[in-house]
Amino acid sequence: MPALDCLVPDCLELAEALAPVALCAWHLSVSADWVASHEGATDVLPTPCRLCGSRLGVRWPSGWLCAVCEWRHGEAVDGELPPPRVDVVYYVRFDDRIKIGTTANPRRRLTAIWHDELLAFEPGDRLVERRRHALFAEERLGRTEWFRRSPVLDAHVAELAAGVDDPWALYARWTSAAVALRG
């Protein structure tokens, strides 16, 4: 393929061979800088977001924003504001049983429950919890919130946990989204 001239009038440079638009390296660089200043550039934050812990950010000429919760990188978290209420349905395993419960404060709640492993979180309140209890009623142990493991329950938990390395990071994202929504 023959080399093309840069499309910018009066530019005497050759266009970059693999560029999507026939521009020379300098004009491509100027274009990239312009796009970054108007659209932001997604990149890794210099340090994790202090609000949600995400490492993904958007770099603007005026500074960084967290790509998850839009917290301005470097700003202090206002400790006087109460944390937002984020209800979750949790799934914990103890031995060969799974507990399905709900809470607005999972750290405090899970320290009070004897368990081997946190399996998953899903957003939801008592209504979602009751639906899960009804969905897995055949596996329920008496009138408790504990259930026998079964292929159906295991599949549900696996679906919730798919792509989630750490359920706490997911909860942090939901919390930071709630903070961002309240302004």
Rank of each mutant, 00 (worst) to 15 (best):
G142C: 03
G53D: 03
E129Q: 15
Y91P: 03
S29W: 10
Y90E: 07
A162L: 15
A76L: 11
R109D: 02
V30L: 14
A155M: 12
R59E: 09
A41S: 08
C66R: 07
R55Y: 04
D33V: 04
L181I: 01
A17D: 14
A22V: 10
I100K: 05
V35A: 14
E39H: 12
D78A: 08
A155C: 09
P84H: 03
H115D: 05
W146M: 07
S37H: 04
Y91T: 02
R55C: 06
Y171D: 01
D96H: 15
A180K: 05
D125L: 06
V21L: 15
R50D: 10
V157G: 08
I100F: 07
R130A: 12
P123T: 10
V58P: 00
W71S: 09
V92Y: 10
V152L: 13
S176K: 02
D33F: 10
R93V: 13
D5W: 04
L7D: 15
N105A: 14
F147E: 00
G142Q: 04
L28W: 07
L45T: 00
E75I: 05
R59M: 07
S37G: 07
F121Q: 09
G53P: 03
F121T: 08
A36K: 09
L23K: 09
V86D: 10
A162M: 10
W174D: 01
L45I: 00
A22R: 12
E70W: 12
C24S: 05
A19C: 12
F136G: 00
P61G: 04
A41I: 01
V152M: 05
R140Y: 02
L135C: 10
P46R: 05
A19G: 13
G63H: 12
R140F: 00
A104H: 09
V44D: 10
L181N: 11
R182K: 11
P84A: 06
A15F: 05
V152Y: 02
N105Q: 13
V164R: 11
T144R: 10
R59D: 06
G63Q: 09
P61K: 01
L81D: 13
R50A: 13
W34E: 12
A169K: 08
C66I: 09
T175E: 11
A169L: 08
L118P: 10
D87I: 02
I100Q: 04
V157I: 15
D95N: 11
G74K: 14
D78P: 05
V58W: 04
A172Y: 08
L170G: 03
M1G: 13
G124V: 04
A15T: 13
V44I: 12
G183S: 00
L51P: 01
V35E: 07
L18V: 12
W146Y: 09
D125A: 14
L12A: 12
A137Q: 10
C69L: 06
A180R: 11
L4Q: 14
A158S: 15
R131C: 06
D5K: 09
V68T: 15
A67E: 11
R59K: 14
C52Q: 02
L51W: 04
D87F: 11
L160H: 01
V128F: 05
E122S: 07
P82H: 10
